[in-house]
Amino acid sequence: MAAGTETVLDVENLRVSSGARGERRVLVRGVSLTVGRRRTVALVGESGSGKTLTGLALMGLTPAGTAVAAERLLVGGVDLTRMSEPEFARVRGRRIAMVFQNPMEALNPVLRVGHQFSQVLTRNLGVSRSDARDRARELLDSVGVSDARRRLGQYPFEMSGGMLQRMMIALALAAEPDLLVADEPTTALDTTLQAQVMALLAERREDVGMGMVLVSHDLGLVAEYADEVNVMYAGRVVERAPTREMFASPVHPYTLALLRTVREIASPGTDRLSSIPGSPPPLDDPGSGCAFAPRCSFATAECTAVVPELKGVAEGHDVACVRSER
């Protein structure tokens, strides 16, 4: 990270597990992240890589029956691991906020949007209901919703997905949090709206001065909007690098294969796509050694024996692969 950038998220060795004691299944196996103010750090990976669970763990919102542990989980300098749930609840929505993939599911379908705005604003900002109404209009203005008064009187089903996602972004940023976790924020939207919403997030990030964790499966999106990329596979970060470096010189065989496929699909001349054989392992059962080994064209006996650790190959560039250790 650039010198002088204030750190808003510092998480060390984050683990998420589920199940009762004795038969605990580990799902996220030690993720460490640092996000600076006005920086966007991406978590990319395919379904079942643990990227969404990692995002939820930062928010203290993992599903019932799961447990989260970390050496350190500092948001804006405050250690969330030492907090009780009521304390965490006061931080959530204020210092750390989240935008989800499907705004329709994030809103109550039977309440007018304005009502839901004022619930959240009175709670998170401690303002009166009438102040909340004024604030709601300002917030909608800030995300490019022009007819705020009418919109606030509507129910979620009366609006398009793009409009709702703008509203969710406005709501998430109401308290000007230190950190925003955006989990596939544009995946449910059409391409032309995706560009609009990502531009909006980038703009609001600057204005609010927050850091952002962008959870996405889309390498194209990440290339355009993230400063740093973390590639996840089977509950671990397998490669981390500044975005330009990651796309210019990826090292991990999984990153290499993913990028090659994405680029081949995007270039019209490709005759045969080089797909990765097989499919990812279940999150709770990554096998022994490197979880990618069964699909890796470079795998040797060594790969199934030891779990490779993230090690630096260049400034800010870490890779978890035995090949890069030589």
Binding site: S47, H217, L219, T261, I265, L273, I276
Partner: peptide
């Protein structure tokens, strides 16, 4: 997922 997309397209 993209790695599976490529398989199905092929």
């Amino acid at each position: 997922d993209v790695s599976i997309q490529a398989q199905v397209l092929e």
